[in-house]
């Protein structure tokens, strides 16, 4: 049984409890009083389909599919405007990221979401050497939508690139290998272990 099905089976009608049990800081969702100050405070508000407060209401109304497949929580830039104003002190960005992460694990996250795509590229990039290879990260962003548009994007940012080279903010040789951190294997081991622990927790939660 897929993890998603297992969770569905386990929590049946109670998405609020599922969120409380599996999403980072998800336990806070129940405390929302639906004032909407988070929605109004979000600088990216216009870009969201559902505001945080509305997502919290949807969670309580058992709109599981709708919530987990939403791209709204992927919009959060952690500016913390909402947190400082929330009258109930909900750690809203954490919950947003937690929900996004949970959706991804269940395989319900929106496939073509650019934030999700970027997060994956970033993560994979970082994992290789233990630090971000900015050149490769930049290039993969340029070429996200194919070769032609990649060239176009790169040309558009030509001046910036040259300036960064001059200022030694970008190392062209990173194209080939790049610096790794001292104990890259140690890091990989740590991450594997963390992933195991998390997976086991989710697995256990789904029973």
């Amino acid at each position: 049984m897929s993890l998603n099905n297992a969770m569905l089976e386990k929590y049946r009608n109670n998405f609020l409890q599922e969120v409380a049990g599996n999403v980072e800081q998800g336990d806070w969702v129940k405390m929302c009083m639906q004032c909407g100050v988070c929605a109004g405070s979000c600088p990216l508000g216009d870009a969201w389909e559902h505001s945080p407060q509305k997502i919290f209401m949807m969670i309580r109304a058992n709109r599981r599919e709708q919530v987990l497949s939403s791209d709204s929580m992927w919009m959060c830039t952690s500016c913390y405007h909402c947190v400082v104003r929330c009258p109930r002190g909900l750690p809203i960005p954490h919950i947003m990221h937690g929900l996004a992460s949970y959706a991804k694990r269940l395989g319900l996250a929106p496939k073509s979401n650019p934030t999700l795509w970027f997060a994956e590229v970033f993560w994979n990039n970082m994992l290789k050497k233990g630090r971000v290879n900015e050149l490769k990260l930049g290039l993969s962003l340029y070429f996200k939508d194919g070769f032609a548009s990649g060239i176009k994007q790169a040309m558009a940012h030509q001046k910036l690139g040259i300036n960064m080279l001059k200022a030694k903010r970008m190392a062209p040789m990173d194209m080939f290998a790049g610096h790794a951190i001292k104990d890259i294997f140690g890091l990989h081991k740590m991450i594997r272990k963390a992933q195991e622990i998390e997976a086991a927790k989710l697995e256990a939660n789904s029973k």
Binding site: Q34, C35, G36, V37, A39, G40, G45, D46, H50, S51, Q53, K54
Partner: peptide, 11 residues
Amino acid sequence: LNGVDTEGYHR
């Protein structure tokens, strides 16, 4: 005043 009318989410 900036905000959101929560009855239906209107900015």
